[in-house]
Design a protein around this nucleic acid. Structure first.
Lengths: 209, 209, 209, 209
DNA sequence: AATGAATGAGAATTCATTCAT
DNA sequence: TATGAATGAATTCTCATTCAT
């Protein structure tokens, strides 16, 4: 139970796509209302303001984003590398599923003025980094991983590479002659490639071989 | 000779910072005029419109961005890996120097509607990818590099990691307790770390050891 | 029997206070609903519109306002001056009890466009003036009062002085260092002062000594 | 020199009339723009907002209102009663000339929320009361005036009577069959009547005969 | 070349009211 | 009888741009 009505979700998802592609300021509430197929005044009615709609969206998606990974991390039978692979796939999967929301987050992270979303983003990043740090430390203790791993930069590579690919997929498609592929095929293609790429990258950096 | 007067550059650089941090639509021409310390009407007067100011900015910075690398790539005395290292440092250096402009480019790449900047970005990406491709191929021919290198994804890692770090440096600082550092110190710190990180990443992925 | 349900009165009294202090246009039906603790739609439901609510309020209060004085005026044992004093006290009392309503009337009287309230106000003023005129004439006939009394201006002094004090009591309090007094104490204080003031004024103007 | 351009004054005077007759909230900036014959956006352009336009109006008129009386009060040849008459005429004259502005002030004084105008009104009232107090005291010292004069209530009578007449002149006209008179004639008529009325009132209350 | 003044278009939001239940 | 949801119209204000000088 998210606490949002069907119509509210309809509005948030319309806003999500528009915010992702046109930016918050580039999107008018008219655009959102039209895209969502609701009356213009409903947006203020339901969310109070455009700003608060954005906050609601963050809460709505943020809720979904956080409580992942934990049970996998506690699994005693997986090797640390397997767990890292799990993190990679899970992260990638999540971004792929919430592409629009991640574009919005990317945009927000660039802003100089700290809005209501800043704190949420900070906490999300903190939590993610801690989980991965924990995982790497575990691998190091077990002797699986090298010493001297720079976790923050490793995170930057995971997040940056994935994010870059997602936000520039249109260019990627054109640059690599994949325009014939349907959206689904392309997503499948890119997921596989990216997964392999990141795994080989992480393996090379983390392990002794 | 860039063809831009001092005042025009003043305006473009003010716009650059604002566009980077607040987005194109989040920045008003009034903001720009104020930041640049020029009369409001000057912007339309000099550039025609806000849109065209953006295009001028791309031309102004794009001009600077492209004509790099070539002579280094033709150097016969450097190993391929050294050249790759050169590319990494040169790219990183460039992004660091033009952080604002790169933020703008990141934002633009997310947009769905293809503006006047789209073509420029596409060509830039194409050229970069070709140069690196060429370099990798050379390394492979020389037996320095492994076969089966996925250049587009490697580019995504280079660009994505660097870009992510630049655009989220504020979070990085806070997350890693580096807030005491001055901007300069931090930049130096991050450059070194990132350079090492990317080089070890590329080395691990490209070479046989 | 006024013909209004408890809930309707609740709404009208909430509206009365808000209209008095914020003006008709400065008060939203939402404000009224909230203040009255009723559902927003109830107001249209019960009164038809905000405008009609105002009219109902005028009817509700107007009803109460008019049917005063008459029996006192017919009293054969009071002197004319005593009757004038009675009018002063009765008028003052009424305004004090219906301060909010009188603020609303003051506001309405300034309006250029003649609303539904205009006629009611006109009739009220007419009736009042006639009654006082009658009373003065009686006093003149009896030789108690001077000739050449300008009744309309005398009314203006009665109404104007009282009204001014009521509508600006906040300033009066501050200007005369009475802020320590409770609302009740202040009302008592002001009533007494004003009664004395008006009576001495009227006595001086009306009588031969 | 008021510091306001011709166009700004044009706007303020249009606003003044509308605010007086329809109230601040009952007047839209559209109304003002239309009445003033200027473009809608000019109002924000010149004054920032509707609220600030109101403040400017208060400053514009307040400026004119205050610096009166003083030299008359210092005149050694006039009797105190003559000076009081002077105050009455001067006050009345002022209100008659700035009828609209005084309506606005009357409205503002009823408001519960203290806006930017509150302080100005308070100071104006304070100054006025002090000047009159001073004048009465002088008359008392000279033995011209009675002891035990309630100055604040006397002020209420001056201000209230005049104000009431001004704000309800339309009713006064109709009630006293003066509708045939032109505006100018009526103003002349009312001025004379009111002046006489107030003077006789004050004389009766202040002096020993 | 440069600018203060001006403007039409469009922004977000609030409003009184109505409707379906 | 009563109400949560919905809406068209109108609100204030900001915007990028242009014009007269």
């Amino acid at each position: 139970m998210t606490g949002y009505s069907e119509k509210q979700i309809q509005i948030m998802e319309a806003a999500e796509e528009l915010f992702a592609n046109k930016g918050f300021d580039g999107t008018s509430v008219r655009d959102i209302a039209e895209e969502a197929g609701v009356n213009l005044a409903m947006i203020s009615y339901y969310f109070g303001s455009k700003e608060k709609l954005m906050e609601s969206l963050f809460q709505y998606r943020g809720h979904y984003i956080t409580l992942q990974l934990e049970n996998m991390l506690q699994n005693k039978e997986m090797s640390s590398l397997q767990k890292v692979y799990g993190v990679i796939d899970s992260y990638m999967e999540r971004i792929m599923k919430l592409q629009c929301f991640h574009k919005i987050m990317s945009r927000e992270q660039m802003a100089d003025v700290k809005g209501a979303t800043t704190k949420l983003i900070h906490e999300l990043k903190k939590k993610n980094q801690e989980l991965v740090q924990q995982l790497i430390s575990e691998g190091q203790k077990k002797g699986e991983f090298k010493k001297n791993i720079d976790v923050p930069l490793l995170m930057a590579t995971l997040i940056g590479t994935t994010g870059h690919l997602v936000t520039t997929q249109h260019y990627y498609k054109k640059l690599n002659n994949l325009e014939a592929l349907s959206d689904e095929e392309f997503e499948k293609h890119i997921k596989k490639k990216l997964s392999n790429h990141l795994k080989s990258l992480f393996k090379a950096v983390l392990t002794y071989e």
